[in-house]
Amino acid sequence: MAWIVKNSATMQIERREDPYLDDELKKMLETEVIPRFPSRQAATLPVLHAVQHKHSWIPYQALEEAAEFLETSASQLLDTASFYDDFWLNPKGRYLIMMCQSVSCELLGQMDLLESIKAKLQIEPGQTTEDGKFTLMTVGCLGSCDTAPCALVNETLHENLTTENFGQILDGLE
């Protein structure tokens, strides 16, 4: 799991005028999500998902706004958000490649596949290409072991990958 390292004493939060959690989003969450739970804090994961879905990542300002909305503290929300791999507290590329590295995938050639993608994109796992198009990650298991090796690109699962077909898939993205 993720441990965050930040200099709380001197860190400046970048701010902008427009709220990340705008009225429209708040209204949707208030009517559709909040009533599901006996406490507002319980809506943390759905709220963070909604913010990330809209903005691609979760800036600190958005965390503060979400904390106010959920009637909890920003530090509590940071505690939760930083725990989960799916929440991005830093900007990521337009396409997030999550390559499965489970035993099943490694048995069927995931290592070579990863090397070829690293060479193709010129980045290591955890990094984003200079043009901001791709972010590469390796993940535990995507639950598609029968079609190993596999990878998620944003919300789409790609199965039975080879260096050739995966290269073509990435080339085909805008």
Partner: peptide, 28 residues
Amino acid sequence: QCYVHRGAGAYICGEETGLLESLEGKRG
């Protein structure tokens, strides 16, 4: 009522009490 609740990429949330913590909006 029945609701779909999405996790956020933490294996430990498959442990039943980790799942409950996560459901309550905390780390799992």
